[in-house]
Amino acid sequence: MGGILVIAEHRKGDLLDVTWEILNKAAVVSESTGQRVTAVLAGFNVRAMAEKLAGRAHKVVVVDNPELANYNYEVYRDVLTGIIKNLRPVLILIGHTTTGMDLAPALAAHLNIPLATACIDFSIEDGKLTAIRQMYNGKVNARVCFSSSDCYMVTLRPGSFSVETENAWGGEIQSISLEVEKPSGIKFIRSVEAALGEVDITQADILVSVGQGIGDKKNLQLVEELAALLGGTLSCSRPVVDKKWLPKERQVGSSGKTVKPKVYLAIGISGSFQHLMGLKGGTIIAINKDPRAPIFRVADYGIVGDLFQVVPVLKEKIKSLK
């Protein structure tokens, strides 16, 4: 009994990065507290993934069943409830992804487990769990504590921890066969892949990305010209797509695309966590008139100013450099 349970998330035969990030954190916590790490893998035909997980956990509990082929809260709740009641962990960790968040709150309430979501870190000191979570557009963080309980749950934002792993643990893989009832309330119909647009921003080396700060569809011309000048591609944050100023294929972020350009110019983008989740590397340059915008915490370089004043002058400077 006891231990840290990591609910592994996967899609189309691949484990998500966030699962590895959480396992890395769990490994660190395991070292200091002595709590053993168990990964839980529920799905269909998941043996290969189980073996990968065994490299980074003391134990992997696998439930392999056709009813688990696609995520369905109704089914996953019942399976995980059974496993949790059986293993009685002290801490359950789930990725703060769309699926993780479809699962965690209701599951925690079902089992009366205190849950903190949208966390970017947690620690156990002297047997006390505290977590750091984000609030208010990422402009404020909160350190939260929990009232006494046998078990706690935390969802962790992708990108909070390192994803690099050395998979050398050799954990035990335990297959569990369960009676999995067909769901009666939620039926999975099919998956819709992202529509292939004419532009693939994931292939671009240079991205000029625009956010709500651009103010109007007509103002896009300003940044389009900048992108053309640099030989780069135009991308954007979610609000720009919601307002239908640019198509979804241009969106960088958790519900859009993940990009890893050489240079990323974030113009009028506040830098919400969801947006930054889609940004995996390169030199990040931010132009924003709000000095406290979260983007400035992750940018390599920044100019605090009105983009309508900065961008035109920047274009001239670039022209003279070419």
Partner: peptide, 23 residues
């Protein structure tokens, strides 16, 4: 069951260089 102990403005670990000077 989950209580806020403290709110704080996040400090960045990253050495962001904010450019200064005239436009």
């Amino acid at each position: 069951q989950v209580k806020i102990e403290k709110l704080f403005i996040p400090v960045s670990n990253k050495a962001t260089e904010i450019l200064t000077g005239s436009l």
